[in-house]
Structures are given as structure tokens and as C-alpha cells.
Amino acid sequence: MPHPNDKLARLLRTQPAKLDFLSVLAEADRQKLAGDIEQARQAHSKHIRGSMEEALNQLPWLLRAPIRKLFGV
């Protein structure tokens, strides 16, 4: 049986049991929180990828591909 905190645990990269303190929230509130976290995660990811692209654009284009490979981006 899935744990009620499975989705949040996935988003927060932790174990569902470590989110027991969130059991005071109703299911609908937990869903809303998951939506908030997902949005924050997407915004953060976009921000970091954008910053990395900007950084790579500062380099001579011949270096960009090997550096992408080196850093895994």
C-alpha cells in the first residue's frame, strides 16, 4: 500500500517516514504542498540550467562541448 507521503518524499528526496510531521495536514493540503514544491523545483531547475547555459556561452565554442561532457550538462 502506498504511503500517503510518497509523492512528497519523492519531491523532497527523502524517506516517507521522515515526513511524518506532515501527517497533521489533510490529504488535499498535502497535494497543494506537493504542487508548491514542484513549482519551486521547476523554477530552481530552470534558473540553474539558465545560469549554466550563460556560463558556457562565455567560453569559446570549441570548448563548450567537452566542458558540457565533463560536467554532465
Binding site: 523532497l12 528526496r13 504542498l33 519551486a40 523545483r41 540553474i48 560536467f71 554532465g72
Partner: peptide
């Protein structure tokens, strides 16, 4: 909750 969120955001790109 805030600490967990901040850490998870950081961990997503920790390798990089």
C-alpha cells in the same frame, strides 16, 4: 519543511 525543500533543490544539482 523549508530545510528539506532547500536541501532537495540543492541536491538536484549537487553532482554538477
Amino acid at each position: 519543511l523549508r530545510t528539506l525543500i532547500q536541501n532537495s533543490l540543492l541536491e538536484e544539482f549537487a553532482g554538477l
